[in-house]
């Protein structure tokens, strides 16, 4: 059974001659535990598609199901619960709260989920270890580098154990080397956490790490590649719970 099912999604901005057809009859499925790269030129409709899937935007037509829940039928509270339990985001601009420490930022979704403090702290510590920032738990975003901030954002996204991780150009503001390490981290957590990831990117390395690549052009799905052999060698084979604490 697919974790993500997109059927006939259409989204148009504006009306009349000035109308922009961002998505036209987009359909595809994503299996659980896979990492999918969504690629295409700027303005091809990647972000619109991610927004519709994550419930941040509503399509004009079509349906989206995430883990059996029809996203397009949910009201605002339902979407909030969906984002709290099943879907998580990683932003290009990190989206951290400046006055909270890295640990407190990671713990934010768990606070919303009313997770007990002890369990929350344990989970936060594990996630920070997972992203390699166990020693930076008390630092604020302003005291971290861009790559470190994106790692914190990834940890935060994973905090509530979502079924689907959506990342829109997660390496867009990072240099190439840092971007690659973040990509590798994402690849790792997909495998270790069993999460499904849908990532828009221009980065060939990311595409290489993905289980599958969906190409989108002018709002239509153009091509869907099969998984690549190199993907089998991606780092991060163990789950978060199994990962050893840093020395």
């Amino acid at each position: 059974m697919s974790l993500l099912r997109v059927r006939g999604v259409t989204r148009t901005f504006g009306a009349g001659p000035a109308a922009v057809h961002a998505l036209t009859d987009v359909s595809f499925d994503v299996e659980p535990g896979t990492m999918v790269a969504l690629v295409g030129r700027s303005g091809s409709g990647k972000t619109t598609l991610l927004n519709v899937i994550g419930g941040l935007d509503r399509p004009d037509a079509g349906t989206v199901h995430v883990d059996g829940t029809e996203v397009t039928a949910l009201d605002e509270d339902g979407l909030s619960m969906l984002r709290r339990e099943k879907v998580a985001y990683v932003f290009q601009t990190f989206g951290l709260i400046p006055v909270l420490s890295a640990a407190e930022n990671v713990g934010a979704p768990l606070r919303l989920a009313r997770t007990p403090a002890a369990e929350r702290e344990r989970r936060v510590a594990l996630l920070l270890d997972l992203v390699g920032l166990g020693d930076h738990a008390g630092q604020r975003p302003g005291e971290l580098s861009g790559g470190q901030q994106q790692r914190v954002a990834i940890a935060r996204a994973l905090a509530a154990s979502p079924r689907l991780l959506i990342a829109d150009e997660p390496t867009g503001q990072l240099d190439a080397e840092t971007g690659r390490s973040v990509m590798a981290l994402l690849r790792g957590v997909v495998e270790s956490e069993g999460v499904t990831a849908l990532i828009s990117t221009h980065d060939p390395v990311m595409m290489a790490l993905a289980d599958r690549v969906i190409r989108i052009s002018d709002g239509r799905v153009e091509d869907q590649d099969a998984p690549r052999a190199e993907q089998q060698n991606a780092p991060g084979a163990r789950s978060v719970e199994e990962r050893d604490p840093p020395c």
Binding site: S80, M81, A113, A160
Partner: peptide, 13 residues
């Protein structure tokens, strides 16, 4: 901006 980010992690409107 912050509130919108918080909404993406489940904060209700």
């Amino acid at each position: 901006q912050t509130l919108t980010r918080l909404r993406t992690i489940g904060l209700r409107p």
